[in-house]
């Protein structure tokens, strides 16, 4: 019998599928709904120091290749988020599902502050989002752009909290392996790869970009080959566990992500098609694939494509 159980840091997940940050991670009831629907782990929506309304509509569209979004980091601010996360963590605990709390900040110092505030909710991991492509006009170049900045944020958050931390990287950097190495040196416990790819859609009849923010982040099937390459490159440079994220919508996609070197597999845009039921479907398909091809554990697949 093929088993989907996944060990990640000191955690034991019933399956490797993790709800990606920014997808339905806005309330205890929605996160519990995704856990009940079969997610092995849950990541909350990225939270920053202050409340943010986000961008104006249109903020997201589904197109042939997947999804493009410029939500703009809508969140209630760290103080309010702590109580939501407390409640979420309690509900998820009874379901045996870990909570990963995602944070972002406009400045280096604030990364430490937000991490410290959020740590009060005792999530199982803090995921540090240094790679949102949709706030550059306000916050400047994302910290994920260079190894130096990514390492500096990691150092700041590492100093602020003792909880495990994962750094969430962007796909659009020249040398993601070097960047990850620098982040690992500063004490990251895991890597989440990748965030969305900066992109634009234009409506020819309207003669303008469809998103109000003009540009957005591309996710879903079009992102998968890019994410696989990033995960493979990261796995070849560091031994940290990876939450491989980008374009996973079937069990086979999940197997590919694990074969590139991922320990856990993030699922985001695929929720669009089936709703939270997507987790049970992907888990069943992954089991089916393992039975068909003779794998009994995830570990046998991990990194296989790169050996």
């Amino acid at each position: 019998m093929a088993g989907l159980a996944a060990d990640f840091l000191n955690l034991h997940l019933k399956n490797p599928l993790v709800l990606a940050s920014g997808i339905l991670g806005t309330s205890p009831s929605l996160m519990a709904r995704c856990a009940l629907a079969g997610a092995g782990g849950i990541t909350s929506k990225s939270c920053g120091p202050e409340p943010r309304a986000g961008h104006d509509n249109p903020v997201a569209l589904a197109w042939q290749g997947g999804v493009i979004n410029a939500i703009g980091l809508t969140n209630p601010g760290a103080q309010e988020e702590v109580s939501l996360l407390h409640e979420t963590r309690d509900r998820l605990k009874t379901l045996g599902v870990p909570l990963f709390a995602s944070i972002f900040a406009p400045t280096l110092e604030q990364f430490g502050e937000v991490a410290r505030v959020i740590a009060d909710a005792e999530p199982n991991l803090i995921e540090v989002n240094i790679s949102c492509p949709n706030v550059a006009s306000e916050f400047g170049t994302p910290f994920s752009a260079t190894a130096e900045m990514a390492a500096a944020v990691t150092r700041e958050v590492r100093r602020a909290v003792s909880l495990p931390i994962s750094i969430k990287l962007a796909p659009n950097v020249p040398m993601i392996g070097d960047l990850t190495h620098a982040v690992a040196e500063e004490g990251a416990d895991a890597i989440t790869a990748v965030n969305t790819m900066p992109a634009m859609l234009i409506d020819a009849y309207a003669g303008r970009p469809v998103l109000k923010n003009r540009t957005g982040g591309l996710s879903g099937p079009a992102l998968k080959p890019i994410a696989l390459r990033c995960v493979a490159e990261i796995a070849s440079r560091v031994s940290l566990p990876i939450i491989g994220t980008g374009g996973v919508s079937t069990g086979i996609d999940a197997a590919e992500m694990i074969m590139a070197g991922a320990t856990l597999v993030g699922v985001g845009s695929a929720v669009w098609e089936d709703g939270p039921a997507v987790f049970a479907r992907i888990a069943n398909e992954l089991t089916g694939f393992m039975v068909e091809t003779g794998y009994s554990q995830l570990g046998e697949m991990r990194g296989r494509a790169m050996r």
Binding site: G22, I23, L24, G25, T26, S27, L30, K45, G54, N57, V59, A60, L61, A62, V67, N69, I71, T74, G268, S269, V271, W272, G275
Partner: peptide, 8 residues
């Protein structure tokens, strides 16, 4: 906002 069941 998103209209496709993603943003919550």
């Amino acid at each position: 906002r998103c209209g496709v069941g993603l943003c919550g």
